[in-house]
């Protein structure tokens, strides 16, 4: 008896798939995602991130500090000093 229940339960679990909860859903879902609004919705979903990246870029360039270029003579002198070590 106990073994029968266990076997039935296991068989039921194995037989049940997510799709069997709603066998007609999958094609409906795919059709509803890729309908005539798809590209507009994609653009609307992506747009906040584009603006956020723009803001991040502006703040990055506002806070970074590029060191002034080292004159050629001085660079050569420093390299010579490092080589002699």
């Amino acid at each position: 008896m106990r073994r029968g229940i266990l076997t039935g339960f296991t068989t039921g679990l194995l037989a049940a798939t997510a799709a069997s909860a709603c066998p007609t859903c999958r094609p409906d879902v795919v059709a509803a995602i890729f309908d005539e609004h798809f590209w507009v919705r994609l653009l609307l979903t992506v747009q906040p991130f584009l603006i956020l990246l723009l803001i991040v870029g502006v703040l990055y360039f506002a806070t970074r500090e590029v060191p002034p270029p080292v004159p050629v003579k001085q660079r050569a002198r420093r390299q010579g000093r490092e080589r002699s070590r």
Binding site: I55, V56, L59, Y60, F61, T63, R64, E65, V66, P67
Partner: peptide, 10 residues
């Protein structure tokens, strides 16, 4: 040069 750390944090 705080820029790279600010970039990462943002």
């Amino acid at each position: 040069n705080r820029g790279p750390l600010v970039l990462a944090g943002l």
